[in-house]
Design a protein around this nucleic acid. Structure first.
Length: 272
DNA sequence: ATCGCCTCCTGCGCGC
DNA sequence: TGCGCGCAGGAGGCGA
């Protein structure tokens, strides 16, 4: 479900429900583990804490509280929804509820359970976060960074652009869309991109992710925003999920190939 | 060190 | 209609 835009949209929705006085009243856990064991004892110490902000790093959501950080990753199928505590009904695959003192409840639901819950007192010491590469809009995400990353590897650009050490947040859908938008085929070796192409790649990653966030993300399958609305960026997909359909630009048939085990869509007319 | 392959898990859509 | 199969937005571990 979530790549960076979807996580960011959920972050914005959840953030709307809190103000500077919002505190965590109570957690309810329906499972002890999803992908990894949930550190329930540590997380429970956050009861009574004020939520200062809800932020995002890569595809992680971070609840910044007065007593520490709750870190959540949505995996493939995770989602949050906002419910009034009094009207709350537990549905299948609801794993965690965060009840706030303002009567709202944030509910985490994840059918495939690939998501992660973590606790941290100090984000800078968090192993998972520490090893992440640059955010797409950061100055560290530059052509020199890409050249450094690409010079020693022989991977395809599709695989490289999905590597969180190269840049965080680009998942399988947006990788195909971004490469179509800059006219580079997904199997091209990352090493062989010119400086000009690297520059275009950076700009297009920023542009497409920004637009996707503005459009509420891509609601394919079950993705919904935390406020229950659907995103609309799926209507802007030019190649993803369009195998056999005519390219909107050159009318050639969109192809699907598997790269590193992931379906990759591209247009043989537009991408070289 | 790097890379491809496999795995975790449930649900859905397709073809027979 | 029912069943089996393949596939799905992520990411970490393994062995070559």
């Amino acid at each position: 479900m979530p790549e960076l835009p979807e996580v960011e949209v959920i972050r914005q929705d959840l953030s709307q429900e809190i103000d500077k006085n919002s505190a965590i009243k109570k957690f309810i856990f329906y499972r002890k583990d999803i992908r990894e064991p949930i550190p329930i004892k540590k997380i429970t110490t956050l009861e009574g804490a004020t939520i200062k902000a809800i932020s995002r790093r890569a595809k992680y959501l971070i609840f910044e509280t007065s007593k520490g950080y709750l870190i959540s990753h949505l995996g493939m199928s995770g989602n949050w929804r906002i419910v009034d505590s009094l009207k709350l009904k537990n549905v299948k695959h609801d794993h965690v509820e965060i009840h706030l003192n303002n009567g709202k409840c944030f509910v985490y639901n994840d059918p495939r359970r690939f998501g992660i819950f973590g606790f941290s007192e100090n984000l800078e010491k968090n192993k998972k976060l520490k090893e992440l590469g640059p955010e797409p809009w950061s100055s560290e995400f530059s052509t020199s960074h890409l050249r450094e990353m690409f010079k020693k590897t022989n991977r395809s650009i599709k695989v490289a652009v999905m590597d969180p050490k190269v840049v965080v947040g680009v998942g399988n859908i947006y990788a195909s869309e971004i490469l179509f938008a800059i006219g580079i085929k997904p199997t091209k070796k990352s090493q062989r991109l010119t400086l000009d192409e690297l520059e275009k790649l950076i700009q297009m990653i920023r542009q497409i992710l920004t637009e996707a966030i503005q459009r509420g993300g891509s609601s394919i399958k079950t993705f919904q925003k935390a406020n229950g609305q659907s995103g609309s960026f799926q209507n802007s997909h030019k190649v993803y999920g369009r195998m056999g359909d005519a390219c909107f630009v050159c009318h050639e048939k969109i192809r699907k190939i598997v790269i590193a085990g992931r379906s990759s869509f591209w247009c043989p007319g537009c991408q070289r």
